[in-house]
């Protein structure tokens, strides 16, 4: 169920250049049902900036009733968010959308998780849940540079992890697709989240494979009412649109026209 919760900040730290890891506690955590769902955060108590910011849930700790989000402080809204301190209360709407289907990869088989930049966070909870049920996870994480890369250790603890940076300051120089080439296609399922060009490259490289992609779009309501966040579907016959916030953000590969 979607709820509006006043969540308490239980942790906030800069884990890479302008990349923040924030921990929040509240009853909303109990409502989360799949990795890849997101929350819509009101960053200010006034009407400036006006709109909520959509941020993925990166990790859940049900025992502590705590969730982690990882975000880049870039524009006005996320910068304000990064100024919140432990103990502050934040208005959070969620959990929203449909996440990654963990059930699509049977135990004992291999899944490959490909993330780019701020698309990496939701893959962490996904990997935790997949590995917990006995799926072998391979992670391919792409960043611009070493100083904005994060969570290498956390992912490595869960499975084989490869890093690519555009400028070569960490891991392999280049894009996630360059790493993917070296891994081959001995896996059952792929899951990916990142910028559109990356999703397109991943989908094209793994044509014919079972995959799930998480999309981003500008949002208004975040709950499916305003038609701001639509994506075009590939079925060209009727030029249908689907909503990223409530039909997605995760869709099976091939559904969304990229």
């Amino acid at each position: 169920m979607i709820i509006q919760d006043r969540m308490r900040v239980t942790g906030q730290r800069e884990i890479a250049k302008n990349i923040f890891e924030m921990k929040l506690t509240g009853k909303l955590v109990g409502e989360i049902n799949s990795p890849g769902q997101f929350v819509h955060i009101r960053v200010s108590d006034s009407f400036e900036p006006l709109l909520r910011r959509p941020i993925s849930i990166a990790s859940i700790d049900n025992k502590a009733n705590e969730m982690t989000i990882i975000y880049r402080a870039e524009g006005r809204g996320t910068q304000l968010l990064s100024m919140k301190k432990e103990g502050d209360m934040v208005d959070v709407l969620g959990p929203l959308g449909n996440g990654f289907p963990v059930g699509e990869t049977p135990p004992g088989e291999t899944a490959i998780l490909i993330g780019g930049g701020i698309g990496v966070p939701p893959l962490y909870e996904l990997s935790k849940q997949l590995t917990a049920k006995g799926v072998n996870c391979i992670h391919v994480l792409g960043y611009q540079t070493a100083d904005v890369s994060f969570y290498e250790e956390e992912f490595t603890r869960l499975g084989e992890t490869y890093i690519a940076t555009v400028d070569g300051t960490k891991g392999r120089a280049g894009f996630v697709t360059d790493v993917m080439e070296t891994i081959g296609d001995g896996f059952t399922t792929y899951y990916s989240c990142g910028p559109m060009p990356m999703l397109n490259a991943v989908q094209t490289a793994y044509i014919g494979k079972k995959g799930f992609l998480s999309f981003e779009q500008r949002m208004g309501c975040g709950i499916g009412a305003c038609f701001a966040c639509v994506c075009e579907t590939t079925e060209k016959t009727d030029k249908e649109y689907i909503k990223v916030c409530s039909d997605g953000p995760v869709f099976p590969a091939g559904v969304v026209s990229i």
Partner: peptide, 23 residues
């Protein structure tokens, strides 16, 4: 109606612009 292409919304000072296009 399917409405307009995206982006359909943009935040502005204490407001927002939308061009949903009557989807």
């Amino acid at each position: 109606r399917f409405g307009n292409p995206t982006p359909r919304v943009a935040e502005t000072a204490s407001g927002m612009l939308n061009a949903i296009g009557l989807q």
